[in-house]
Simulated assay, not measured.
Amino acid sequence: MFKIAFVLFGLMVLGCVYSYYHPQDPYYNRYLPAEIEVSQILAYGSEFRLLEGCGAVIYELSPAMAKKLNDKGASMLKTGMQPRGISDFRFAYGDWRPTPVASVFFSRFIQDDEGYTPMMCADLGGWEEKVRNIAAKAGGVYTFDDHSLLLLEPEEKLAVFLYEK
């Protein structure tokens, strides 16, 4: 009996270690439309409570994706792109818009002096200022759905996904 408990405990520890060091394995990539090519996850963070949660993921855009965005801009991106891991049509993204991010979305997802935003709960260890800067300047594109914002910045080769629920 002790051996079985020991083996089960060991498997649980291995699973926890694996999930800690491999966060980009399909879980976080499922929020991006298949058309958005990324090379890796640079930072991520989240906070979950009983029935709600919020967080952010910062991806490095692939060089080919950054070039396409620089060359063609938002015209290469379709309205209604579906996240690759979510088939529910309610989560399709809307129209792509040029940055800077509109103030209503900036205060809801990135920085609000009076509220708790997904950027604040993610605790991204130094990435917050960079995300605020790229969201506030021209040169990128963003889209949103009812619970998230997706920001692409080709010059910096970054994609930022912010969510609340």
Rank of each mutant, 00 (worst) to 15 (best):
M1T: 14
F2R: 12
I4F: 08
I4K: 07
A5G: 07
A5V: 15
V7L: 06
L8N: 12
F9W: 04
F9G: 06
G15H: 06
V17F: 13
V17K: 15
Y20P: 00
Y21T: 14
Q24N: 11
Y27Q: 09
Y28N: 11
N29E: 05
N29F: 08
L32W: 02
P33Y: 00
A34F: 07
A34I: 11
I36F: 01
E37D: 11
E37M: 08
V38H: 10
G45V: 01
E47Y: 11
E47S: 11
F48P: 09
F48Y: 07
L51R: 14
E52A: 06
C54H: 09
G55Q: 03
A56S: 14
I58F: 03
L61Q: 04
S62R: 02
S62I: 03
P63S: 02
P63C: 14
M65N: 03
M65F: 04
K67Y: 15
K68P: 12
L69V: 11
D71S: 10
D71W: 03
D71E: 11
G73R: 00
G73H: 02
A74T: 08
M76L: 11
M76F: 05
L77P: 08
L77T: 06
K78P: 12
K78V: 09
M81Y: 09
Q82C: 01
P83K: 04
G85M: 10
G85V: 07
G85C: 02
I86R: 12
F91T: 04
F91C: 02
A92G: 10
Y93R: 12
W96T: 12
W96E: 08
R97P: 15
R97V: 09
V101L: 13
V101Y: 05
V101H: 02
V104E: 15
S107Q: 10
F109Y: 09
I110C: 01
I110K: 00
D112K: 12
D112T: 06
E114T: 10
G115P: 12
G115W: 05
Y116W: 12
Y116F: 13
T117P: 00
C121G: 10
D123Y: 09
G125C: 02
G125K: 02
G126I: 06
G126D: 06
W127F: 15
W127Q: 06
K130S: 08
R132G: 09
N133P: 07
N133S: 04
I134S: 01
A135Y: 07
A136Q: 09
A138K: 15
A138W: 05
G139I: 04
G140S: 14
V141F: 13
Y142Q: 03
F144M: 06
D146A: 12
H147S: 10
L149W: 03
L150V: 13
L150K: 13
E155W: 01
E155I: 00
E156C: 15
L158Q: 05
F161T: 06
Y163R: 11
K165W: 15
